[in-house]
């Protein structure tokens, strides 16, 4: 079992490694963005799936990481720091916000928690709009080709892939460690967890910090990958896409967020776009995505991957 899983993972990596050689640059570009999107999804799953705190403001971390690195490196506020400094800075600032939102979440539950976290990113969007001289408003701004990882799209693709692999490995190590066990204890039964001596407050906050750090790093990577920053990185559609991905793959399963993230990103940016063009009615890729989300919530709350897996294994027996 273990060995065959390693083989499968190596195979996946091998296929992705040759993709830029066989496909067009716009497909490679999209796949690179999908790698980063997977990190958004997995980092959300750490808090939502492992500690059970449904944070609808995950895009705050992504956006903060992105705008931090964009502002510090592009010269818009008079600074031209090298990107290997600004990207971790983005992650670090996102981490601080993670700590803060984590503290808020300690006080709130259910609807109230969801409401506060859902509104937070909207405040950032509105601030970006008001101070458009700095943040570029709803048009966003470009950091310029010279501030990308490389002018060559294949190089940027490999950097994004490496980032994803390292991040996933790091987060996997965390959830499989003793700390991950404690996260799940907090999710399953707070009182029991407290009774066996787990410091709930501490572990919730740690989970938020980890989630925010990786999301912030991923947001920052996005900027230097796609060369632009905009309020879409804070916005509700991105949040819904992340949630949809994790639900599709299976929440709290780790691999679910990885597979779901890929599947949904590629579906939205490639398959749905083709489908929208092919259909006789004027629909957009976003519209199809929301229909999918509604259907999934209603029909398969336990995750599509689990269903698919059950289906495939029942066939082979």
């Amino acid at each position: 079992m273990k060995a065959s899983l390693y083989i499968a993972i190596s195979l996946v990596i091998a296929v992705f490694a040759v993709m830029p050689l066989i496909s067009s640059s716009s497909i490679a570009y999209m796949l690179g963005l999908a790698f980063i999107f997977v990190v958004y999804c997995v980092s959300w799953d750490i808090v939502a799936g492992y500690t059970g705190q449904v944070n609808l403001g995950h895009t705050v971390f992504i956006g903060i990481g992105a705008y931090t690195t964009a502002l510090l490196s592009s010269g818009r506020i008079g600074m031209h720091l090298p990107i290997w400094i600004t990207i971790p800075t983005g992650g670090a600032i996102a981490l601080l916000f993670g700590l803060w939102i984590g503290v808020i979440c300690l006080r709130l539950k259910g609807y109230y928690l969801a409401l506060v976290t859902a509104v937070l990113p909207l405040i950032f969007i509105q601030l970006a709009n008001i101070f458009s001289g700095i943040f570029g408003g709803y048009e966003g701004f470009s950091v310029g080709l010279s501030r990308g990882f490389s002018p060559d799209i294949s190089v940027r693709y490999y950097i994004a892939m490496l980032f994803m692999l390292v991040s996933i490995a790091a987060m996997y190590a965390i959830v499989k460690s003793r700390m991950g066990v404690k996260f799940r204890a907090v999710r399953d039964d707070e009182e029991l967890a407290e009774a066996v001596g787990i410091n709930i407050v501490r572990y919730k906050l740690i989970a938020f910090c980890i989630s925010a750090f990786f999301a912030g790093m991923a947001g920052a990577m996005t900027v230097h990958y796609r060369l632009t920053v905009g309020v879409d990185l804070f916005d509700i559609p991105l949040m819904l896409a992340v949630i949809l991905s994790v639900i599709t793959g299976g929440i709290g399963t780790f691999y679910g967020a990885v597979i779901g993230g890929f599947a949904i990103f590629i579906a939205k940016n490639w398959f749905f776009r083709m489908l929208a063009d092919a259909l006789p009615v004027p629909v957009s890729d976003d519209l199809l995505l929301y229909v999918l989300l509604i259907v999934l919530i209603l029909k398969m709350p336990e995750g599509v991957v689990n269903r698919l897996e059950a289906f495939l294994s029942s066939r082979s027996q």
Partner: peptide, 22 residues
């Protein structure tokens, strides 16, 4: 799980080839 991964992999390969026109 492995089957799901393989399925996805095939999709990606198809994607790579269809998109790679001149």
């Amino acid at each position: 799980m492995r089957r799901v991964i393989l399925l996805l992999l095939c999709c990606v390969l198809i994607l790579g080839c269809t998109g790679g026109g001149p």
